[in-house]
Design a protein around this nucleic acid. Sequence first.
DNA 1: AAAAAAC
Length: 751
Amino acid sequence: MAKTGNRAVGTSGKKPRHTPAQKRAAREAREKQARAQLKGKRQRPTGASRYAEEDRGARSTEGGGYPRRDDRGGYPKRDDRGGYPKRDDRGGYPRRDDRGGYPKRDDRGGYPKRDDRGGYPKRDDRGGYPKRDERGGYQARDDRGHARRRWADEDRSGWREERREREARVERGGRTEHVWRARRDEREGRQDRRGFHEGRGWEERRHRDDDRFGEPERRGPRRDDRFEDRRGGRRFEDRRDDSAEASPEDEREAAEAAYQEHLASGAQEDATATVTEDNGFAGLGLHEDLVAALARTGISQPFPIQAATIPDALAGRDLLGRGQTGSGKTMAFGLPMLHRLAGRPRAVPHRPRALILTPTRELAMQIVDALAPLMRAVDKRFLLVAGGMSYTPQLSALERGVDVLVATPGRLIDLIERSAADLSEVEVAVLDEADHMAEMGFVEAIKEILDKTPTDGQRLLFSATLDHGVDQVARAYLTDPVTHSTNDVAASVDTMEHHVFLVHPHHKKPITAAIANRTGRTIVFCRTKLGADRVALQLRESGVFAAALHGGLNQAQRTRVLDAFKKGTLPVLVATDVAARGIHVDSVSLVLQVDPPADHKDYLHRAGRTARAGDEGVVVTLALPHQKKQVARLLDAAGVQTDALTVAPEDVAIIETAGGSVPDGEPIPQSRLDEVLRPRRPQRQGGGGRGRYGDRGPSRGGYRGGRDGDRGGYRGSRDRDREGDRGGYSRRPRRDPDAARDSRPDWRPRG
DNA sequence: AAAAAAC
């Protein structure tokens, strides 16, 4: 019951209601519409929900198992876009125009195959599934909370239904995604014309690929122009205006702004440092510019994994590196890669010479951070290619030619399909955290990408574990690889202490707070995104300053949270497993697992966030009584020997062994979180130099300057973001729905 | 099982 109610709310595009009164009102409104519909009265929302009903029916009767990434895999059919058979429909297709008047039912009917054809899987997945699309968006987080709770209430039948729908959509194939998207928009009453706009954007891009590709893509005002042109003068602004949620464009721009902040907070190099006699990197035979650059950042001796792998990598061999993150893998592949590129001619436009693939955006950023000074030292251009960021800089950088591409799979495939990137000249391909990327759902993307690189290129694969997936990828793509392992698996790091605390469910919250209330950086791991939000909130309410990091935040938020944590302004990071792998933050002295990890590998990955590079670190795992066995098994598999201790909040002594103390209980005000996470005003105005995530080369003033000038709409929204009144973390409801309702009844726009 | 990865 709650389920259908909720769905109807979602699909009809109304914001979800939260108070019982609001829910009631919503229900009544729907019923009223339904009655009106019966009377043949034509109302747009009525039509929308009617179609939603049909979709639902269609979905739920179709089936077929399909995992998620395959949805995306379904996407790559470039023909869908390319062939784009619906162009004419689009143009001549009246639906969108009718929006206002919503008359053409016949058109709909007369447009026969739509239902059957529909099913652009992934996109619709997101769209039809209201939470995902707007995730991080204004309304979404609450949606999520809302939905999750519902699922929990109903014993997760919601999940199953979700999945059935997704599968049904996959079944339908991906031929007419734009129609689906438009239909979904309509169904949901979404009037920001976003789906439509994007559809046109793709189509248009395809047609100018050859001649105009890479030309700065203007936004803002021109979008309206486009609409006017295309739609015969109709304007859609009014519709957009009634939606106060952050548009994807806003978010991408905010993400960009966040990069700039991140960049501005970068570490300084010590220009006076010189290469000394005993420099270990020089001894390995690395290019002198690289060695010098390393010395400037204070690095003169290779880590074991580096010493082991670099000679082989320099010799051009394929490499299978096994080692925990933090063991210096980035340099282990980065240095030989750059050594090889050094002195080579600059890459041809669109064709990078080296590719580094990573499973998460954060990791990609970190790799760029770590390698940027080196890449500059040998005058190589690099680019971060990852989702959640604006396309334009990535496109134009590729247009200009990029030597080293650091990428997450999804966006890279996207760019390849747009012909913006071509991997045919990749000499060195690196797979970082390959075990993660070899997971189901990811692996197809990886294969697809690797298949596009030359088979005779060098391939370096790094992974913490070498189980099935990795093994398979390694065998398929590595030629006669040298395998190097480091033994610094978390379990064998002797500077790491492991504790398991058995806690009563009621005590979890105070104990979490007491353990996390400490000096020094702490990462708290949770199983779910919602859990991370909740724990962060609870910690703040208990007086421990914490913020959540998970994939549900938009990219700008993710960057800011992580930056704040790295800078130390945020002492406690509450994260999902997005942070379990490959997040390099120095001196994290405690890892607290509020939810036990799923398996021993996750345990080791999480634990590996602490006790890095010889530091001391403590890992505390909270287990509820029923989890005791599971945790014991898991620790055993991880090779960690420790006994579970039953702990109650009054066992202060035990808690203190983990470094914590009972917090004063004075809630951390929202403003403090806002303060830390608010976008800071970048000092730079246009042309502000080279980004960490895309180097424009030493002789360039940087794209930003030019682009800001080019793009009328950009600065506007960026400025808004700078003001902190738009798109920023502070704007989003990050409390759980109940709390949000209590404290900010009006945060949601009406309508 | 969750999370991640494109729009």
